[in-house]
């Protein structure tokens, strides 16, 4: 399942999508949990009883601000979350 967390507003689209099928047998040791400096990810049991990552509810409405420090202008050449998630489950829309 592709789960999209985030929003669209007047300034753009800010979604983090997680391919939860890749989380089921995560080969990265749930690295997303520790990689994100804002602690945005969490492992939950989804509606189909699979243990997958999601973006915490309280984080989904302010992604543009919270992720700003990680984006290239903030000094990163790649994002900590997408780099740590070697199965490639995490994608950003902006």
């Amino acid at each position: 399942m592709i789960a999209n967390y985030g929003y669209k507003d007047g300034s753009g689209e800010y979604y983090i999508s997680i391919d939860t099928d890749k989380c089921i047998d995560c080969t990265a040791g749930r690295a997303c949990l520790t990689a994100c400096p804002k602690n945005m990810f969490e492992i939950i049991t989804d509606d189909y009883d699979d243990e997958v990552a999601w973006v915490k509810k309280e984080c989904t409405r302010a992604l543009a601000y919270d992720c700003a420090a990680c984006k290239p202008a903030g000094g990163y050449t790649s994002l900590p979350c997408t780099t740590a998630c070697t199965p490639g489950a995490i994608k950003h829309s902006w």
Partner: peptide
């Protein structure tokens, strides 16, 4: 009826 992709907007 199993979800394969979803997106939610609850911001406004």
């Amino acid at each position: 009826g199993k979800v394969t992709n979803f997106l939610m907007n609850d911001k406004c």
